[in-house]
Design a protein around this nucleic acid. Structure first.
Length: 888
RNA sequence: GGGCCUGUAGCUCAGUUGGUUAGAGCGCUACCUUGACACGGUAGAGGUCACAGAUUCGAGUUCUGUCAGGCCCACCA
């Protein structure tokens, strides 16, 4: 049993990552028994590479799935990637642009082929990365949203919704990105406040020379498409003009003056221009007043012929300048005022989005939202932390129809065929041979593709085989849990709930755990578009995957953002190093002693069924602590308090196991009372710790466990298949915990006295401990441990005995005197004085509290009792401290 | 305009149902190169829990308000 001196995760992590996949141990089998626990991965974009934000989600998912696997549940974690329509298309178009080719040069089919090529070549990146960080997914179930199976699911639900009248096609105002040349849903548009201007423009009233209506606008170029001006019916300034017309400047067109509440008398001039073709509000107003649409801006954001000869072909911003200049020249520009306005940007390319009327496909959301709201209201789906349900409700209750068609080439073609003869639409699961209305064979498929999120919305069940009733679907659906970031609650979570309920009649998942966003040192959101991503692969190379995972888990309590910092990763690597070296210590000693290989039986908890009263105190204590730790870790993971689980383990392993338990065991070895009597207990604790640590730190635990349990017949193939330790009441040993705490206190007191006196740690000092009863027994039985760990020579005496002189530390249980020269006691005097003042305060407070009648009446007996006990302790301590100060 | 979150040690953050001298990691100070580990050990310093009220026997923890940050949603030209 030899372990390399240096902890080098790079040496064994790739090995286990590969082995986990090739051994097939994470392959799910729905025919096996076991409570199902299923997890769908948020499918990352094929174009993507793993960023640190994925890393936290994946770590949490992996932790929970490994945990459930070790509990013996029938687990499945389905991996996969999303075709990510716009994102992927953009990437490939950018590649093409380098060669000076546009997608239009290639044509649709050739372009699609190009994207598939690209995917084959680079799309595997993110999957490789997932393997590298140890995701224990079932790779045999790997899915891609454009797979035939998933595409079939898409068609199925599209047709169903169409047949139910929940998908419709029509001409509406949509967000149009002139660069991507596609419609966008409301969610794909970001609003940013920008410093702009509010221009006031005179519109001459017809037949009333010298009279103007002055409109206020932030987008003067759209005036060329105005078909009315609106005033408010309550606004007496202009009321006499109702029913009259104005002459639209620069065009000479005559347009009506209408009454509409959209004109706010308090804002601007109180008069607003109405451009139904280029503004969502105006579009609605246009409907109310039956106004014509004049489209002056085209798909590429250039002015159309309708805008007039002077402007046709100009870019919209160029046109704005020209319009303003022309108005100025004609004396019609009344004012230019600075004005902040929200500008709508394409989420993908940050181009200013143009509201345009066009023919698109929509999902009618309101009837679908209703059951989706109920599912969360009645708790069939639970958000964790719970307050995210508010966000969800707010959005769902104000839901608007979802524009699902995109004028892209990469994605699911809309399963609708247009007839060239009768113009009818045939929506079908299979490619139709003829128009269902007129039987003409002259049909062509709709050229649009579906919003990427339409297929993602089917993910939890489409990946399990829906619409077929597969074994997977029966066993694993609804999935147990979804772990994701809050940034895609609307995009993805809400849509999955809507479509899941519609498709399967069941919720797609029972719980949604929302983790925080990972931010950088400047608290900036890390995102691909901003380019401030930390490459998780670089940091895993540097610190080891386990360390990165651990550092993120520790930094990610529910409901808070996560600041990724290399400091934390370094600290976590130190922890991994600590584990490694603890293992080295064990292995070295085992070898020295020529110990036989360890042969544990496979059971949930290796601790003894009952505590053998003859085993050493430190064994009883560490068993009991480990037992408690196991209980708490289980509780923490089961309630998604990952940071708490990590924290508990960190503390247990480093402080309890390494700093106390192993240190004491070393003494036993040196005394020669040794290994035989102790090694099995040590290994038991160590092995159990490895299991507890495994979900968070899979690599190092697998590596050490495999070496430790090498060649043991009947052991599981992997630590990840071993049982997760559970609380065992028979192991709880309050007495041992109490005694060990006392031991720690005695040793601490002696060390503290020595340090205060600034004496050489190597110099052995005389110590006297004065105590009776159980304390005296402990001091005697643990004399060696105290002497070695505090480097003293100890004498135990009854509390009534004459006291030696020196540095003194008192507790209710014992007085410890260390033979420190009187000259060295200054620091102690200081400390005692401070302590006395402190204690007096505490005693006074406690007394006050205990003489308060209300408190005595209302506080629970448990609280009263502990306070009484504590007060007695404080008083005793105070007396002792005073006495100690006197004696100095 | 609505809604949500955060403000605790020099830094980054824990602290679930209110319960009694407030915790961790990093950093800092002193000492220790002791046969698992200097990615280590021992002992320390450091906080009126943003501010002001309220509820309560008792508030970092509940409520109200203020201040300071951050985020999300929303068609005001």
């Amino acid at each position: 049993m030899e372990l390399e001196k240096i902890y080098e995760p790079q040496r064994f992590e790739p090995h286990w990552a590969e082995w986990w996949e090739n051994s097939g141990i994470y392959q799910a089998d729905p025919s096996q028994p076991g409570r199902p626990f299923s997890l769908a991965i948020p499918p990352p974009n094929v174009t993507g590479s793993l960023h640190i934000g994925h890393m936290i989600g994946h770590t949490e998912m992996d932790m929970i799935i490994r945990y459930h696997r070790m509990l013996g549940d029938n687990t499945v974690w389905v991996p996969g990637t999303d075709h990510a329509g716009i994102a992927t298309q953009m990437v490939v178009e950018r590649e093409l642009a380098k060669e000076g080719v546009s997608r239009f040069d290639l044509g649709r089919e050739a372009f699609e082929a190009k994207v598939w090529d690209w995917k084959a070549q680079y799309g595997g990146n993110i999957e490789r990365q997932m393997r590298k960080i140890g995701d224990s997914v079932d790779w045999t179930r790997n899915r891609f949203t454009l797979d035939p199976g998933l595409s079939r699911a898409v068609r199925e639900i599209f047709v169903r919704l169409y047949e139910k009248g929940l998908i419709y096609r029509g001409e509406y105002m949509v967000n149009w990105c002139p660069r991507c040349r596609t419609a966008l849903s409301d969610l794909e548009v970001n609003h940013e406040d920008t410093a702009g201007s509010l221009w006031e423009i005179h519109y001459p009233v017809k037949d009333q020379p010298g009279r103007f209506l002055t409109v206020a606008t932030t987008r003067p170029e759209t005036m060329l498409g105005d078909t009315a001006v609106a005033i408010n019916a309550r606004d007496e300034r202009y009321l006499d003009l109702h029913g009259k017309t104005v002459i639209l400047p620069l065009t000479g067109r005559e347009i009506p003056i209408v009454l509409d509440d959209m004109a706010d008398p308090e804002f601007g001039t109180g008069v607003v221009k109405v451009t139904p073709a280029h503004d969502p509000n105006d579009f609605e107003a246009g409907k109310r007043h039956n106004l014509p649409h004049i489209r002056v801006i085209n798909d590429e954001a250039k002015m159309t012929a309708e805008a007039g000869e002077a402007y046709a072909g100009l870019d919209r911003f160029e046109a704005r300048k020209r319009v303003l200049a022309d108005l100025e020249a004609q004396g019609l520009l009344a004012a230019t005022k600075p004005h902040n306005l929200p500008v709508s940007l394409c989420q993908r390319c940050r181009t200013v989005v143009e509201p345009l009327v066009s023919k698109q496909w929509f999902v009618k959301m309101e009837p679908l939202a209703k059951p989706a709201i109920e599912a969360v209201e009645d708790g069939r789906i639970q958000f964790i932390p719970e307050n995210w349900s508010h966000t969800y409700f707010h959005w769902m209750r104000n839901i608007r129809d979802w524009c699902i068609s995109r004028q892209l080439w990469w994605g699911h073609r809309i399963p609708a065929w247009h007839c060239a003869d009768c113009a009818g639409i045939t929506v079908s699961r299979e490619t139709p041979a003829a128009c269902q209305h007129c039987q003409s064979a002259n049909v062509a498929q709709d050229t649009d593709v579906l919003d990427t999120w339409f297929s993602s919305g089917l993910w939890p069940f489409s990946t399990l085989g829906w619409p077929d009733q597969t074994e997977d679907l029966k066993k694993y659906y609804p999935t147990s849990l979804l772990i994701t970031g809050f940034d895609i609650i609307f995009f993805w979570v809400a849509r999955m709930i809507v479509l899941g309920l519609e498709c399967t009649g069941e919720v797609p998942f029972r719980q949604v755990y929302i983790h925080g966003l990972v931010r950088d040192a400047e608290r900036q959101k890390m995102s691909k578009t901003k380019g401030n991503v930390i490459d998780p692969l670089a940091v895993t190379e540097k610190y080891g995957t386990d360390a990165v995972r651990m550092s993120l888990v520790l930094a990610a309590p529910p409901g808070t953002d996560i600041i990724a910092s290399e400091d934390r990763m370094q600290a976590a690597r130190s922890f991994a190093n600590k584990i490694w070296n603890a293992a080295r210590f064990l292995f070295l000693n085992l070898e020295r002693a020529g110990a036989e290989p360890w042969a544990p039986e496979e059971k949930a908890f290796y601790l003894p069924e009952a505590i053998d009263g003859t085993i050493a105190l430190e064994d009883r204590w560490i068993f009991s602590s480990l037992n408690t730790c196991a209980a708490e870790v289980n509780k923490a993971i089961a309630s998604y308090r990952f940071h708490e689980a990590a924290n508990l383990l960190w503390h247990f392993f480093w402080d309890d196991f390494c700093d106390w338990y192993i240190e004491i065991k070393k003494l036993r070895f040196r005394d020669g009372s040794g290994l035989d009597a102790n090694w099995r207990n040590i290994l038991t604790v160590f092995e159990t710790s490895l299991r507890l640590l495994h979900p968070a730190m899979p690599f190092i635990t697998e590596e050490l466990w495999q070496r430790l349990c090498k060649e043991i017949p009947g052991r599981p193939a992997s630590i990840s298949l071993a049982q997760f330790p559970q609380y065992n009441d028979a192991v709880k040993d309050a007495e041992a915990e109490k005694q060990f705490a006392l031991l720690q206190e005695i040793i601490g007191a002696a060390r503290n006295l020595r340090a205060d006196a600034k004496l050489d740690p190597k110099q052995q000092l005389d110590a006297h401990i004065y105590c009776d009863g159980p304390s005296a027994e402990l001091a005697s039985s643990q004399k060696q441990a105290i002497e070695r760990l505090a480097n003293v020579s100890l004498q135990v005496a009854p509390s009534a005995a004459d006291r030696a002189r020196g540095g003194k530390r008192s507790t209710p249980e014992f007085d410890l005197v260390l033979s420190v020269p009187a000259a060295q006691l200054e620091k102690q005097r200081e400390r005692l004085t401070k302590e006395i003042a402190n204690l007096e305060q505490v005693v006074a407070n406690s007394e006050k509290q205990l003489s308060n009648e209300d408190f005595l009446k209302k506080a629970p007996e448990k609280v009263l009792a502990t306070l009484r006990d504590k007060l007695a302790d404080y008083r005793a301590q105070l007396d002792k401290s005073k006495q100690a100060l006197d004696e100095l």
